[in-house]
């Protein structure tokens, strides 16, 4: 479907504003720090799962590659987060309290032990020292892996940014799927060909999750879904979907070729980057234009004023 046609799906609505100025503040988070942090966290989480499961099922090459990727990207994710702080020297204040109402607090308490455990596992893998402790650390990091893959979705959704907040049901699945394809992508590049089977299958499962969540986000959110379809974020997300599809296709068709598998892996990783940057940019776009704040809130007020019967599915039964 062409972009032009997609625009017409949302009817033009009139709204008033203060000199067209934004109502919300744009996120102060830096690019590439924060979208990079989102991507690396997902890559680390799924790689830890691949590493532990690979080790447990007798695939030492896959385990080694994935453990190293998990540690490297977890440490890089921490680095990106600290670099983005206005006062980086105070990064330890993140662990000053544990607040369930703050996804960044919860996330810090996931990320900090995860990166420690993943690093211990990778260090053991590299040096050959304390192999049992290394395996245990890898297993523990894999236990935190699913949370690593998804907590950043809550981090974005728990804001007033319309495109992020209204997607709070879909974003965790988009990020989980994206994390699985990223981890699979790294393994398709770095793991021995004979042990790539699980990575291939994880990639296909992740691609399915990611594409389904992206479809729902772009179609199901009405006006606030518009930034996901238009402009730079729209291009990035379309590129992400195309790369995911290419990665999935090549990973199956080229499974006998080392080179084609590596290309599939690179496509998966590029897809993960495009999707995170696209989601990030879409949020910024929805904060920049007051229509994404005013029009949905006006509709909500109008809906509350008149007795509209809402079905469980969310479809309006009777609207005068």
């Amino acid at each position: 479907m062409s972009p032009r046609r997609e625009q017409e799906m949302v009817p033009r609505a009139e709204f008033r504003s203060y000199y067209g100025r934004p109502i919300l503040k744009q996120p102060a988070w830096k690019v590439p720090d924060v979208p990079g942090y989102l991507f690396l966290g997902g890559l680390a989480g799924s790689s830890a799962m691949l590493g532990a499961l690979g080790g447990a099922t007798g695939r030492p090459g896959l385990a080694r590659a994935s453990r190293l990727v998990a540690a490297g990207s977890a440490v890089a994710s921490v680095g990106a987060l600290i670099h983005d702080l206005g006062r980086p020297e105070r990064f330890l204040n993140m662990l000053r309290v544990l607040k369930p109402t703050s996804p960044l607090s919860v996330g810090s308490w996931i990320l900090a032990p995860f990166s420690g455990l993943a690093s211990a596992s990778a260090a053991s893998e590299l040096t050959g020292l304390l192999p049992r402790l290394g395996t245990a650390a890898g297993a523990a990091s894999a236990g935190l892996g699913p949370a690593m893959c998804t907590y950043t979705a809550v981090l974005l959704a728990d804001t007033a940014i319309p495109a992020w907040h209204e997607a709070h049901r879909e974003l965790p699945f988009l990020f989980a799927g994206g994390a699985l394809t990223s981890g699979a992508g790294a393994a398709l590049i770095a793991a021995p060909a004979a042990e790539q089977g699980p990575a291939r299958r994880i990639g296909l499962i992740g691609a399915g999750m990611e594409l389904a969540a992206a479809y729902r986000m772009e179609r199901g959110l009405g006006l606030v879904g518009e930034p996901y379809r238009q402009g730079r974020p729209g291009k990035l997300l379309r590129a992400g979907r195309a790369l995911t599809a290419v990665g999935a296709g090549l990973s199956v068709l080229g499974r006998r070729s080392r080179a084609v598998s590596a290309i599939a892996g690179a496509a998966y990783l590029a897809a993960g980057l495009c999707t995170r940057f696209g989601v990030f940019e879409a949020g910024k776009a929805s904060a920049a234009d007051p229509k994404y704040v005013v029009i949905p809130q006006r509709e909500r007020l109008a809906g509350a004023a008149e007795p509209v019967v809402i079905e469980q599915s969310g479809a309006a039964l009777s609207r005068p």
Binding site: L24, K25, A28, L85, L104, A160, W164, G283
Partner: peptide, 13 residues
């Protein structure tokens, strides 16, 4: 105490 994480900024409605 603030370490400048900036999370409050997009959170404010």
């Amino acid at each position: 105490i603030c370490n400048g994480c900036g999370y409050c900024v997009p959170a404010c409605p």
